[in-house]
């Protein structure tokens, strides 16, 4: 950073700073941080390592990131706007989240930087307590906003990653399989909550449309328990499939589930049920007009 300090000082971009004197103080502060950039960066990186933060990263990586954060930090102090820093925080989070960096580490390093800078201000202005106080008054709120911006950016990115992963897991857990032309199988395994039931139905309906399916076998052998809520979702899935012109066969209703359903009074009479998956597929093939013949029979006849 070889830019001239004078240019920065004369350009008045501090719209977010309410009074001129605070603006002037921040300008002094920024000048100080720029002058001592090398030393403060090193100090910060040292403190990060000492505090055992960002252990997933190498020394060089920490120093490189520290440099960029430092420069963005000073930029944000100077301009009073956080877009660039926010963008960088998101970008950084995207890179370090897959490496297992935790939220408290990110907050930790930002707080460390705040501490390093405050100490250096203290060292510089300790001869004039009144001025030091005013400088700190100007620095504190800006530093807090910056810390907030970075932490929030990280947490948002992390939440986004988690949501994506959940989505991917859910997609995997409800595969819609085409076993024959126009015949789909949907094996459901595990616990069905409303959210999963909804996703499952949406996926099945899309599958019916893209595969032009006429028959769907929903196998619930792997569903441990079923309450009236889940049963109603199942009924809805069957009805929605029918609206697209597909017939649904439900297989794998365990004796326990069958008993529960009758006890809680869920009306499954409209549902086409077959004992097991194999029987369900045979029934589906019949509906589609297939006839399965053993090869040995046909050759014997020939």
């Amino acid at each position: 950073m070889a830019k001239k300090e004078d240019n920065r000082i004369t350009s008045d971009t501090d719209q977010n700073v309410p009074s001129e004197s605070i603006g002037e103080l921040l300008r002094q502060l920024v000048a100080h941080l720029r002058q001592n950039r090398t030393q403060l960066r090193q100090e910060w990186a040292r403190r990060i390592t000492q505090a055992k933060l960002l252990t997933a990263m190498s020394q060089d990586e920490i120093f490189a990131e520290a440099t960029t954060i430092y420069d963005n930090y000073v930029e944000a102090l100077e301009s009073g706007t956080f877009e660039a820093l926010q963008g960088y925080a998101r970008n950084l989070s995207e890179r370090i989240i897959p490496r297992g960096v935790e939220t408290q580490e990110v907050i930790g390093i930002v707080l460390l930087l705040r501490d390093v800078l405050a100490r250096s201000l203290f060292a510089k202005y300790q001869h004039d307590f009144a001025l030091l106080n005013r400088i700190l008054d100007a620095y504190e709120p800006a530093a807090n906003s910056i810390a907030n911006t970075v932490a929030v950016g990280f947490v948002q990115e992390r939440e986004r990653t988690i949501t994506q992963q959940q989505e991917a897991i859910r997609e995997l857990s409800t595969p819609v399989l085409q076993v024959r032309e126009r015949l789909l199988i949907l094996p459901i395994i595990g616990v069905i909550d409303p959210q999963r039931a909804r996703q499952l139905t949406e996926q099945l309906l899309r599958g019916i449309r893209t595969n032009r399916a006429k028959v769907v076998v929903i196998d619930i052998t792997g569903v441990a328990a079923m309450d009236s809520n889940v049963a109603n979702h199942l009924v809805q899935t069957v009805e929605a499939s029918r609206l697209l012109g597909a017939t649904v066969i439900v297989t794998g209703l365990s004796p326990e589930i069958a008993q529960t359903l009758v006890t809680i009074g869920v009306d499954l009479t409209k549902m086409n049920t077959v004992g097991d998956l194999q029987g369900g597929i045979e029934e589906a093939e019949k509906l589609l007009g297939y006839k399965v013949i053993l090869v040995s029979d046909t050759t014997a006849q020939a």
């Binding site: 139905t201 949406e202 309906l205 899309r206 019916i208 449309r209 809805q236 899935t237 009805e239 929605a240 499939s241 609206l243 697209l244």
Partner: peptide, 10 residues
Amino acid sequence: IQPEVAFAMV
């Protein structure tokens, strides 16, 4: 009937 429409209907 569109998949989304069927979903909303049920």
